[in-house]
């Protein structure tokens, strides 16, 4: 469903500054209907990977595809939902208008948008504040609105960059429930997270990336079988990679 074939990406900041190799030779395959958890320390390249998938940045080499279509084809995004990390939306729009935009630009009919937006706003507990400008929202409320926006057009592939960050325990549980619900509907979910307990609970497979290199992929059940916790596996990979400092 989602596939990376030796994708590399380097950032050059400024004229003389040194280059940062954010991703090297990432090769990864995610099957349909899978919940994939993407783990890694800060600056490991998780968001970079996700931005490549959304065609926000272009890989230096390699190819990323979703459902066999190259991600630079804009039609890919008809069936992709995306929640950026630390999302920020328009100040003076309301949540309702935000979802209207999301639905309309995905080609949904007006009645379908209204119906689905009410359903989703209820699910993320924003139904009462739906007519307030997003400027007046708290961080967690913006995050919730973003989640509703990512799901408004009922996408087959859902890509979430740290969906739990900034949410209270109830919100975290809500996101977890939504992800499990998506799984039940046969959707593919790719999400990055630092909260290992959530990942353990929700994911079928995980990938651990350190310093731009994918160190480990595997089924959660298999990793846990040896008596390890996910945290043990995570720490071990970071240790083996010899990472001393956040880049």
């Amino acid at each position: 469903m989602i596939s990376f074939a030796s994708v590399s990406k380097e950032f050059k900041e400024g004229v003389a500054a040194k280059r940062v190799r954010a991703l090297s030779n990432l090769t990864l395959e995610i099957e349909r209907g899978q919940i994939f958890g993407f783990l890694g320390p800060n600056g490991a390249g998780k968001s970079t990977t996700i931005k490549i998938l959304l065609n926000l940045i272009f890989p230096d080499s390699g190819r990323a595809t979703i459902r066999g279509m190259d991600v630079c084809d804009k039609n890919v995004r008809r069936f992709v939902g995306y929640l950026p990390e630390n999302p920020y939306f328009y100040d003076y729009l309301t949540a309702e208008e935000l979802l209207w935009f999301g639905g309309k630009s995905s080609g949904m009919a007006k009645s379908a948008i209204v119906e689905r937006s009410n359903l989703l706003l209820d699910k993320v507990q924003l139904l009462e504040s739906r007519k307030r400008p997003l400027r007046t929202y708290s961080k967690g409320m913006v995050q919730r609105a973003g989640l509703a926006l990512a799901l408004i057009h009922n996408p087959d592939v859902v890509i979430l960059d740290e969906p739990m960050s900034g949410l209270d325990p109830i919100g975290r549980k809500m996101v977890g429930d939504i992800i499990l619900e998506l799984k039940k509907e046969g959707k593919t979910v790719f999400f990055s997270s630092h909260i290992l307990s959530d990942v353990e609970r929700l994911c079928d497979r995980v990938g651990i990336i350190v310093g731009g290199q994918l160190r480990l992929t595997g089924c959660v059940a298999e990793i846990l079988k040896g008596g390890d916790t996910l945290e043990d596996a995570f720490m071990r990979e970071v240790h083996i990679a010899g990472l001393k400092e956040v880049r």
């Binding site: 992709v80 995306y82 950026p84 939306f89 630009s105």
Partner: peptide, 9 residues
């Protein structure tokens, strides 16, 4: 980001 995540060039 939210605009470019839509099928819009």
């Amino acid at each position: 980001y939210m605009v470019m995540a839509k099928p819009i060039s």
